[in-house]
Design a binder for these strands. Structure first.
Lengths: 339, 339
DNA sequence: ATGAAAGCGCTAACAG
DNA sequence: CTGTTAGCGCTTTCAT
């Protein structure tokens, strides 16, 4: 049962002064005498007074709370992003309300409403895989609440963004497979309604083109989870037996692909080289250790929230938006090897 | 810049009725005529009216927001817990404010204040490794705000708790090593100021005792991270050359231990069997795949929040607290093998 | 140096 | 069926 929390009114009554004096004393307003200031502060401490943020926020029309909408917290990449957001929020005195959409459009809509109702000062969003319509996000801009999209951005809504150079990263990964001597390179891709899915395919294509390889649509398999990889790799490789390099859209897919290859009695990297994307902690644990493209989740979080806080705290020209692009770097390990 | 958000006052003015009528109409109060109800609701929708949760919360003295204080979001176990919390919170109409302590006592204190100031209806806590003093948590109980501790509980504060049966899990792990024929079993342990660290050592000891093995303090190494394992395993095994089984306090330590063993030219499991604790996704990726004790993070989250919401919504006898104990189960894989 | 009063947006007891 | 009013806890003008 919720006990009565002490308010400035209580303090005022006890000290026989007015609530406005208490309010001022607590924030060391210069008008207040040192004497009353100390009296008030002492009593407040003794009574475990804790300012009611609700009341303050209602008054100031500012909550010092940021909303985050994220597909799935359990993915290492996303939890790194949250961690980065959290850390900067802590430094700057913001609270963070985290909502996970579980990749469900409907849940994303309800999450948005909840954040709106709670009058968050700004939101950080990574769009769910099933979201094809974006009006629920537009509500934020309509209310003048700044948004920053990260990783899975929404092209139709102009605002600040933080993304990885997916195209560039995919190029690096594919180029790496080419330069170590792979002749026929496949790509296990993410759904193409996601920009990151598109970007990684483009990078793959550009690398092929630049090195005079033919692009073959049959070598692009929609396959972006561990489960799909375990299920489809063998069939795919039987249908395309001379594939000797695979670029997978993320690490867990890449690792599952390696496991499926090994189960077929083939060797990674000597028969088939495999490279992933993301460089989660798994990459070092896999056997062989996984070559991948480093994607900085924590940094993406810190960059996104810095952009957001800047928008919130500076009356910057409303229509100047920036897109921060994080450049991924190639990390060659044992799963890809010179032939 | 924050635009004026539409309020019931705006709607009232436009419709030429009083704000209380609007308020009632919006919540379909039976007193209100169907006609005005519809008018109000239509206009509200058209104007994108969104109730101001701050005002409501202030009025009701209830925020429908829950606080979470967690050591590190990036650990798979903890992010699973959050995911479970999130999912139930969503179902029950609560928002979640997530704070990470980064294993820092000081940050935990500040996080607690922030949650207190925001008048959360309840808190879910897993204590940081560096926390040795607990007054910041007592503030919650003093204010009548229910708390549930999970995983890393605080023995000195009586309240609801959700824990894994660490002792039992450790017993299972150790017993498993014994029954597959290990003669000399070491334990890589967590710091002993954490209850989970103690519990796992106890389970290890009990298993040894039950199978008439001598307990040797020298075989308990304080080593609970990947880094420590990579650094210390070789030295430890040289000092204790006939160790043929290792029970590590968590999976990442266990996996790093395997890697260190392999680097020494020894084989897992034939030379040394290794078992972990936690069953994160890494266990399946490691080579050999890691035997471990399953710890259900997601379920821990759902149980904890259910307990919390129950306390919040039912004026249950203030001093009846329960401790939910999740029973871990053994998962034998390739890293432990009959000799 | 301090107090009185208004108001942030909403609900609900009370009055018609 | 609808309106008036008070109040949640706080800040801030405007008086004094």
């Amino acid at each position: 049962m919720r006990l009565h929390q002490v308010t400035i009114k209580d303090i005022a009554k006890i000290l026989g002064i007015s609530i406005s004096t208490v309010s001022r004393a607590l924030k060391s307003h210069p008008d207040i005498s040192a004497d009353t200031r100390n009296q008030v502060k002492d009593l407040a401490r003794k009574m475990h007074y804790e300012p009611n943020a609700l009341a303050m926020n209602l008054r100031r029309n500012k909550t010092n709370t940021l909303g985050v909408i994220i597909p799935e917290i359990v993915h290492h990449f996303f939890s790194s992003v949250i961690s980065g957001i959290e850390d900067i929020a802590y430094d700057r005195g913001y609270n963070v309300m985290v909502c996970q959409s579980n990749e469900l459009y409907e849940r994303e809509v309800i999450n948005s409403r909840a954040l709106l109702a709670n009058r968050v000062d700004g939101v950080l969003i990574s769009v769910s895989k099933t979201t094809l319509e974006f009006d629920h996000f537009r509500n934020f801009s309509n209310q003048g609440i700044p948004m920053v999209f990260f990783d899975r951005i929404c092209p139709e809504i102009i605002c600040d963004r933080v993304i990885t150079n997916d195209e560039g990263g995919a190029f690096l990964a594919t180029e790496h497979l080419i330069t170590i001597g792979c002749k026929k390179i496949a790509h296990f891709a993410a759904p193409q309604n996601l920009l990151i899915g598109q970007g990684r395919v483009s990078g793959y294509q550009r690398a092929l083109k630049q090195y005079q390889r033919v692009f073959d649509q049959a070598l692009v398999l929609q396959c972006d989870t561990r489960e799909l990889a375990l299920e489809n790799t063998e069939r795919f490789l039987k249908a395309n037996p001379d594939v000797d390099g695979i670029f997978a859209v993320n690490d867990s897919t890449a690792i599952a692909t390696m496991q499926a290859i090994q189960k077929m009695g083939k060797n990674v990297p000597s028969d088939i080289s495999v490279i992933g994307f993301g460089d989660g902690p798994n990459a070092l644990i896999a056997c062989p250790s996984l070559s991948t493209v480093e994607q900085k989740g924590y940094e993406m979080g810190t960059e996104a929230i810095k952009l957001l806080v800047h928008k919130i705290e500076n009356e910057s020209p409303a229509d100047s938006y920036q897109t921060k692009v994080l450049t991924p770097t190639l990390i060659a390990r044992e799963s890809t090897k010179w032939k």
